[in-house]
């Protein structure tokens, strides 16, 4: 296997979204997920000397992020005993919110679940994209995720519009197959 190299200059552009989604599915907190990704990049930079080139750059960064997530939960667990549990069953009479209505799912919490599901979906799409030829994945990402104009993609990659559409069409067909019944009904 070809020895892999590290290119920290491209880390944010190439891996930040992937790592962010990965972190988000594990910590369920957007700000914390962002911080963990930042810490991962800095830790990666500091331990570049330990990289042996046997794993891909992304795999190596994910391994660092996994450790960051574990560290986060370890730190959180050391404060576990300090948690305060407050249960209120509406003893304050009519002025207080109805106990039953109080149990209805908080819309904010539903949005958090959406965020996790979207992050999981993003990871699934990235996994499927990684199975495509690199050029196909690049064209597809520029067009479908980053929203580039077809003309700009042609200039950037030196291809004609017909080629761009053939590549995008093949990529979408492959993605539909790859995402399968889990995401498409």
């Amino acid at each position: 296997m070809e020895k892999q190299e590290l290119h920290p200059d491209t880390w944010v552009d190439r891996y930040a979204d992937y790592l962010y989604r990965y972190a988000l599915t594990r910590v369920n907190d957007e700000e914390l997920a962002r911080d963990l990704v930042q810490e991962t990049f800095i830790a990666g930079l500091q331990s570049m000397g330990n990289f042996q080139g046997r794993a891909s750059e992304r795999t190596w960064l994910v391994a660092i992020l996994k450790r960051k997530v574990i560290d986060h939960y370890r730190r959180a667990n050391t404060h576990k005993g300090r948690a305060e549990v407050r249960m209120d069953f509406g003893t304050g009479g009519e002025e207080q919110e109805s106990w039953l209505e109080g149990q209805v799912a908080d819309p904010e919490s539903l949005r958090e679940n959406d965020a996790i599901e979207n992050a999981e979906l993003g990871l699934a799409i990235e996994r499927c994209l990684s199975r495509l030829p690199e050029r196909h994945a690049r064209v597809f990402t520029l067009k479908s995720i980053q929203g580039w104009d077809t003309e700009d993609i042609c200039k950037e990659l030196g291809v004609n519009p017909s080629n761009v559409w053939v590549i995008i069409h093949r990529a979408r067909t492959a993605l539909m197959e790859c995402l399968g019944s889990q995401w498409l009904t």
Binding site: P8, V12, V37, I42, I125, S144, L184
Partner: peptide
């Protein structure tokens, strides 16, 4: 299915970092 895929791609846009956040990350890096 192609329409559904477009919907899924729109949803994933919500779980990406903004350009400002990426710029800040690059600066700190």
């Amino acid at each position: 299915k192609n329409n559904q895929l477009s919907g899924l791609l729109d949803r994933t846009a919500a779980s990406t970092l903004s350009e400002e956040e990426k710029k800040a990350m690059k600066q700190r890096l």
